[in-house]
C-alpha cells in the first residue's frame, strides 16, 4: 500500500504529469474561447492532428535548411517555427469549421465530426507526400530544455526542476492571459455576450458572426499549438494517432473547468496526471490495458457531473441567424 502511494507520488511521475498537462490544457483553453462565443468544437481532436503533422514536418524541414548554415541555431529556430506553423495550420483548418458552422449554420457537432474525418485523411496524405510513408515523420529535435536555476542543484528535485520544455511556462502565461482577456477586455466581454445571448449582443451592434469566427479561430490556433507540442516536444516526431483522443479529453477538461481558462488549468492537470499514470507501468497487478483508459474513464465521470454540475454558456451550440430570432 505504501509502495503504491510512493509510486503514485514520485517526482518522475509528477514531472511527466506536468508535461502531459500541456496539450490538454492548450486545447481546453481553445475550447473555452470557442464555446464562450457559442460554438461547440468537436473538431479539436482533428485540429490537434493537423497540428502534430505540421509541427513535426516544419521543424524537420527548417532544421535541415539550417543544419549547414548555422547548426547552433537549430534547437531554437526549428522548433519555434514548427510551433508557429502548427498554430497557423490549426487556425487555417478551424476556418473550415467556422465557415460550415457559423456562416452556413450547419449543426456544429456534424461539422466537427466531419473535420475530424478530414484531418485523419489529410495528415496521412501529406505525410506520404513529404516523407513517403503514411504514419510517421523522421525524428526531430525539440527546444533546448530549461532548468529552474535555484532548484536544479538539489538532486532529489531533479526530475521536476530540470528538462523543462519552454512551452510549459508559455502555456501558463497563455492561461493567465486568457483569463484576463475573457474577464477584463472588451473583446472578452463581447465574445461572452455572443455566447450567452447573441440576439442582445447583435442589438448592441456586436457582429455575432465576427466574434464567433474569432472564437473558433483562436481555438484552432491553440489546438494546433497543442498538436505541435505533442509532436515536437513530446514525441520528437509525428506518429499517426499520437493525439489519442486528447482533443476530446480537453473538452471534458473545459467542462470540468467551468468554461474558464483557470478552471481548465486545474482540470487539465488532473487529466494530465491520469495520462501520465496511464503511460507508466505501475506494478499493481492490474492489466495495463485498463490503466491506459484512466483518462477516458475520468472524462466520463466528470461529464456525468459526479464532481460538479456543468453550467455552459446559454447559447452554446446554437447557430445564430438574424432573421430567425
Amino acid at each position: 500500500m505504501i509502495d503504491l502511494l510512493v509510486s503514485l507520488l514520485n517526482l518522475a511521475l509528477l514531472a511527466s504529469a506536468v508535461r502531459l498537462t500541456v496539450p490538454i490544457l492548450l486545447t481546453a483553453m481553445g475550447a473555452v474561447y470557442s464555446e464562450r462565443g457559442g460554438v461547440v468544437n468537436i473538431g479539436l481532436e482533428g485540429i490537434m492532428i493537423v497540428g502534430t503533422f505540421f509541427g513535426a514536418a516544419t521543424t524537420h524541414l527548417v532544421a535541415q535548411a539550417f543544419l549547414s548554415a548555422d547548426p547552433a541555431a537549430v534547437p531554437v529556430i526549428a522548433p519555434l517555427v514548427g510551433m508557429l506553423a502548427a498554430a497557423a495550420a490549426g487556425m487555417l483548418f478551424s476556418l473550415v469549421h467556422a465557415v460550415v458552422a457559423v456562416t452556413f449554420r450547419v449543426d456544429q457537432i456534424i461539422s466537427g465530426v466531419a473535420l475530424n474525418l478530414l484531418a485523419v485523411g489529410l495528415a496521412r496524405f501529406l505525410n506520404i507526400l513529404f516523407f513517403g510513408v503514411a504514419t510517421q515523420s523522421p525524428g526531430i529535435q525539440g527546444f533546448a530544455p530549461l532548468a529552474i536555476p535555484g532548484l536544479r542543484k538539489i538532486p532529489a528535485l531533479a526530475p521536476l526542476a530540470t528538462g523543462i520544455s519552454p512551452v510549459i511556462p508559455a502555456a501558463l502565461v497563455l492561461v493567465i492571459l486568457g483569463q484576463w482577456v475573457l474577464v477584463r477586455t472588451v473583446f472578452g466581454l463581447r465574445l461572452r455576450a455572443v455566447g450567452e445571448h447573441p440576439a442582445a449582443a447583435d442589438t448592441l451592434g456586436i457582429s455575432v458572426t465576427r466574434m464567433r469566427y474569432a472564437g473558433v479561430l483562436i481555438s484552432g490556433a491553440l489546438a494546433g499549438l497543442a498538436g505541435g507540442y505533442l509532436s515536437i516536444e513530446q514525441g520528437r516526431g509525428y506518429l499517426e494517432g499520437m493525439t489519442q483522443g486528447r482533443g476530446f479529453i480537453a473538452l471534458a477538461a473545459m467542462i470540468f473547468g467551468n468554461w474558464w481558462p483557470l478552471g481548465a488549468l486545474g482540470a487539465s492537470a488532473l487529466f494530465g496526471y491520469f495520462d501520465a499514470l496511464s503511460l507508466r507501468v505501475v506494478h499493481t497487478g492490474v492489466p495495463y490495458q485498463f490503466i491506459t483508459v484512466l483518462p477516458h474513464v475520468a472524462s466520463i465521470l466528470v461529464l456525468a457531473g459526479f464532481v460538479r454540475r456543468a453550467m455552459p454558456p446559454a447559447a452554446d451550440g446554437i447557430p445564430y441567424s438574424k432573421e430567425e430570432v
Binding site: I110, A114, L117, F125
Partner: peptide, 16 residues
Amino acid sequence: EVITILQAVIILAIVV
C-alpha cells in the same frame, strides 16, 4: 488517402 479526403469533403459539402 486522396479518396479519404474526398469522402470527408463530400460530407462537409453535403451538410452545407
